[in-house]
Amino acid sequence: MTTIKTAIIGGAGYTGGELVRLLIHHPHVEIAYIHSNSQKNKPVTSTHPDLLGETDLLFTDAVQTEGIQAVFLALPHGETKSFLDTHPFAEDTIIIDLSTDFRDESHDFVYGLPEINLTTIQQAKKIANPGCFATGIQLALAPAISKGWVKDTIHVSGITGSTGAGKKLADTSHFSYRTNNLSVYKLFTHQHLKEIRQTFKHLDPSFGGEILFVPYRGNFTRGIWITAYFPFEGSEEEAIQTYQEFYKDAAFTFVSVQDIDLKQVINTNKCILHVQKEGGMLVIYSAIDNLLKGAAGQAIQNFNIALGFSQQTGLQLKSIAF
Rank of each mutant, 00 (worst) to 15 (best):
residue 85 D to L: 13
residue 222 R to F: 03
residue 108 D to N: 15
residue 261 D to H: 15
residue 302 N to C: 15
residue 100 T to W: 04
residue 204 D to Y: 13
residue 145 I to Y: 07
residue 13 G to L: 12
residue 179 T to F: 14
residue 278 E to D: 12
residue 209 G to Y: 08
residue 192 H to F: 00
residue 23 L to M: 14
residue 315 L to M: 00
residue 90 A to R: 07
residue 203 L to E: 11
residue 301 Q to P: 00
residue 46 S to W: 01
residue 291 L to I: 09
residue 121 I to N: 06
residue 160 T to W: 02
residue 68 I to H: 02
residue 263 K to I: 02
residue 25 H to L: 12
residue 240 I to C: 01
residue 239 A to F: 02
residue 304 N to W: 02
residue 271 C to S: 15
residue 321 A to Y: 12
residue 175 F to Q: 04
residue 42 K to S: 09
residue 61 D to T: 11
residue 293 K to L: 05
residue 302 N to I: 05
residue 22 L to W: 08
residue 88 P to L: 14
residue 313 T to F: 01
residue 110 V to R: 12
residue 249 D to G: 03
residue 131 G to N: 13
residue 295 A to W: 00
residue 8 I to G: 02
residue 314 G to P: 01
residue 175 F to G: 00
residue 301 Q to W: 07
residue 227 T to D: 10
residue 98 L to G: 00
residue 193 L to F: 01
residue 37 N to M: 00
residue 202 H to D: 08
residue 161 G to V: 08
residue 34 I to Y: 00
residue 312 Q to L: 12
residue 165 A to K: 08
residue 34 I to F: 02
residue 126 K to Q: 12
residue 196 I to T: 13
residue 214 V to L: 07
residue 93 T to K: 07
residue 113 L to M: 12
residue 69 Q to E: 15
residue 101 D to N: 13
residue 56 D to G: 04
residue 64 Q to S: 15
residue 18 E to F: 03
residue 121 I to E: 05
residue 203 L to S: 04
residue 79 E to D: 08
residue 8 I to V: 01
residue 311 Q to W: 00
residue 155 H to S: 15
residue 1 M to E: 10
residue 164 G to E: 03
residue 60 T to L: 09
residue 2 T to N: 10
residue 278 E to K: 14
residue 116 I to L: 13
residue 61 D to H: 14
residue 168 K to V: 11
residue 150 V to K: 05
residue 271 C to H: 13
residue 168 K to L: 11
residue 170 A to N: 09
residue 193 L to I: 05
residue 287 A to Q: 14
residue 129 N to V: 08
residue 53 G to R: 07
residue 105 E to A: 14
residue 109 F to L: 08
residue 181 N to L: 01
residue 185 Y to L: 11
residue 199 T to Y: 05
residue 212 L to V: 13
residue 183 S to D: 03
residue 45 T to F: 08
residue 184 V to N: 03
residue 228 A to H: 01
residue 299 A to K: 01
residue 3 T to I: 11
residue 274 H to C: 11
residue 51 L to R: 03
residue 23 L to K: 07
residue 172 T to Q: 09
residue 190 H to S: 05
residue 227 T to V: 14
residue 93 T to P: 08
residue 165 A to V: 05
residue 230 F to N: 01
residue 274 H to L: 09
residue 55 T to D: 06
residue 191 Q to H: 12
residue 78 G to V: 00
